[in-house]
C-alpha cells in the first residue's frame, strides 16, 4: 500500500481517466507505427512495399472513382460472404443442438465433423469447382463448409455442458421438449454459440478471398489479384483494409449481441 502512495506521489501524474489513457496510448502507438511504415515505404523499392500515404491515396481513389469498381467488387464479395456465413451459422446451430441432445446424431455425425473440421478448406475448392462450376453457388458452398464446423462443435459442446441443474427444474415444471430447447438449452448455450460464430466469421472471410483468388477473378479477392499481377503494390492494400474493416464491423456487432445476452449471466 505505502509503495503505491509513494510512487504515485513522487511521479505526480495528473490523474487521467482510464478511457483517456486508453485513447492516448492507442493514438500515440498508431502515429508511431504509421510513421515507421511511411519511412520504410519511402526507403524501399516500391515494387515490394508502399508508404502509407500512397495506400491512403489509392484507397480514397478507389472509393471516389467509379471506374475502380470498388463498390462492385465489395458487393460481389458480400454476395458470397453473407449468405455463406448466415447459412453456416443457422445450420451449424441446428446441427450442433441436434448432436448435443441426441446420442444417435452425435455418434453418426461426430467422425465426419471431426474430419472435415480439420481438413484445410483450400483443398475443397478444386473439388467443388469440379462439381458446381466456378459461379457464386460453389463459392457459397465452400464458405459454408469453412464456417460451419466451429459453429457445430461449439454449439454441441455448449449443449452437452448444460447441467441438470438447468434442465431439471424445467422438467419438473412440465416443460415440453420444444420448450426445453427454446427456453433453457438455447439461452444457456448462447455464449458458446456466439463464440463459435465468431470463429466461423474469420474462416468465412479467408475462404471468400481464397475462392475469389483461386477461381474467378471477382470481388475484393479479384481486385487483389489484379493489383498484384500488375505490380501495383499500394493498391494491393486497398482490399486488405476494406476486409479488415468489414471483419471488425461484424465482430463488433457480434460482441454487442454477446454483451446484451451474456451480461445477464452475471459471469
Amino acid at each position: 500500500m505505502t509503495d503505491v502512495i509513494t510512487s504515485a506521489g513522487s511521479v505526480r501524474v495528473p490523474s487521467l481517466s482510464t478511457r483517456t489513457k486508453f485513447y492516448l496510448t492507442t493514438g500515440i502507438t498508431f502515429v508511431l507505427l504509421m510513421s515507421v511504415w511511411e519511412l520504410v515505404g519511402r526507403l524501399t523499392n516500391p515494387l515490394f512495399f508502399a508508404p502509407i500515404s500512397d495506400i491512403v491515396v489509392e484507397l480514397v481513389k478507389a472509393i471516389l472513382d467509379p471506374r475502380e469498381r470498388l463498390l462492385t467488387a465489395f458487393l460481389q464479395t458480400l454476395s458470397v460472404l453473407v449468405p455463406g456465413f448466415v447459412i453456416a451459422s443457422v445450420l451449424g446451430v441446428a446441427i450442433g443442438i441436434l448432436m448435443g441432445r441426441r446420442n444417435l446424431a452425435y455418434q453418426t455425425l461426430d467422425p465426419y465433423v471431426t474430419i472435415l473440421y480439420n481438413t484445410p478448406r483450400v483443398v475443397l475448392i478444386p473439388i467443388f469447382m469440379l462439381w458446381l462450376g466456378t459461379g457464386a453457388t460453389m463459392k457459397i458452398v465452400v464458405v459454408v463448409l469453412a464456417a460451419i464446423f466451429p459453429v457445430i462443435v461449439n454449439t454441441m459442446l455448449g449443449v452437452r455442458d448444460v447441467s441438470a441443474q438447468l434442465t431439471e427444474p424445467a422438467r419438473s415444471l412440465k416443460a415440453t421438449e420444444r420448450q426445453l430447447l427454446h427456453k433453457v438449452i438455447f439461452p444457456a448455450t448462447l455464449p458458446f454459440i456466439i463464440a463459435g460464430i465468431k470463429l466461423g466469421l474469420g474462416r468465412a472471410l479467408t475462404t471468400v478471398i481464397v475462392a475469389e483468388l483461386f477461381v474467378s477473378v471477382s470481388g475484393l479477392g479479384g481486385m487483389l489479384h489484379t493489383a498484384a499481377t500488375s505490380y501495383q503494390t499500394a493498391k494491393m492494400f486497398v482490399p486488405a483494409i476494406i476486409l479488415a474493416l468489414l471483419g471488425i464491423l461484424i465482430d463488433g456487432l457480434l460482441s454487442r449481441l454477446e454483451r446484451a445476452t451474456v451480461r445477464r449471466y452475471g459471469a
Binding site: 441443474q165 438447468l166 431439471e168 427444474p169 419438473s172 415444471l173 412440465k174
Partner: peptide
C-alpha cells in the same frame, strides 16, 4: 402441476429476472 419442487441448488435461470423466474412455470 399438483406438485412442485424447491431445489437445494435453487434451480433459477440466470438470464431471467426474479419475475421471469417466478412466472416460468406459468409460462410453460
Amino acid at each position: 402441476v399438483d406438485r412442485a419442487v424447491v431445489f437445494q441448488y435453487f434451480g433459477l435461470y440466470p438470464w431471467r429476472d426474479v419475475l421471469g423466474n417466478v412466472a416460468f412455470g406459468l409460462e410453460l
